[in-house]
């Protein structure tokens, strides 16, 4: 489904991704772990199409398409979803209106009929139950005045409504208490499927207790330094990231 080859990306001339390789197949859940500044979030943003990062080398192929050729809105319509680490507050733009516009843009692109207000509302109600999102938040502007936990929940709620093929969760666990974490994880698990894939970007192991990955990759200094099964996450939890950094080949410099 997703194939990242020797991906290098930089921001303002500073190279952050230094040759990433990653293969994600349909039905799989991959976890990307690593210390702060290792390039995890950059990778997530580059997949979603953020143009503040310049891709200098390598390729990203998604469902047979050259992903780097597509603007962010087309990636979304093709089924890619990024749950933001810091969801953006958009005052004055109604949450429901926004989500309906997003869903119908994707449906139109996929040759499906656009949902009318009634059908959309039914879909929204159904998904809200899964995420346990307060209905009141639907009528508020997008993320405006939401608590940290509500914002993260709203991301997963959007994911549930948009039903992506490839979901990238960027530090969705940060800022969540244990109950909220469990709800969010249950929401994510309910969206797993044979034809779908999930990439979970996280600093900590704890989210992976709830969203169990098939593969774990460890990023350090812009490269994948270890890949393995779920036991790798446990190992990291025990040993800490310094253990990985010591093992990192190349210059000893680490990004803070």
């Amino acid at each position: 489904m997703l194939s990242v080859k020797n991906l290098k990306a930089s921001i303002d001339g500073t190279e952050i991704l230094k040759g990433i390789n990653l293969d994600v197949k349909a039905g799989e859940v991959h976890a990307i772990m690593g210390p702060n500044g290792s390039g995890k979030s950059t990778l997530a943003q580059v997949i979603a199409g953020r143009d503040t990062y310049e891709v200098t080398e390598g390729s990203v192929t998604y469902m047979g398409k050259d992903l780097l050729e597509l603007p962010p809105e087309e990636r979304a319509r093709e089924g890619i979803f990024l749950a933001f680490q810091y969801p953006v507050e958009i005052p004055g733009v109604n949450n429901t209106y926004f989500l309906k516009a997003a869903l119908n843009a994707a449906r139109k692109h996929q040759g499906l009929e656009e949902l009318d207000a009634m059908d959309f509302l039914m879909l929204v109600r159904e998904k809200m139950k899964i995420i346990q999102l307060d209905e009141e938040l639907l009528h508020r502007p997008v993320n405006a005045g939401f608590s940290g936990g509500e914002k993260k929940r709203n991301e997963i709620f959007q994911m549930a409504v948009l039903d992506p093929k490839l979901a990238v969760l960027d530090e969705t666990d940060s800022g969540l208490d244990i109950d909220a974490l469990r709800t969010v994880a249950e929401g994510v698990n309910s969206l797993r499927g044979k034809d779908k894939a999930i990439v979970v970007v996280t600093h900590y192991q704890r989210l992976l207790e709830h969203i169990v990955p098939d593969y774990v990759h460890v990023l350090a200094d812009g490269r994948v330094v270890r890949s393995g099964g779920r036991e790798l996450a446990l190992e990291l939890e025990k040993e800490g990231y310094s253990w990985v950094e010591q093992q990192t080949a190349g210059p000893a410099e680490t990004r803070g």
Partner: peptide, 17 residues
Amino acid sequence: FYLRSRGIDPDEAGRLL
């Protein structure tokens, strides 16, 4: 970028904002 990453056209995203 947030709006576009959800599939919304850049022009429409600008108008929404």
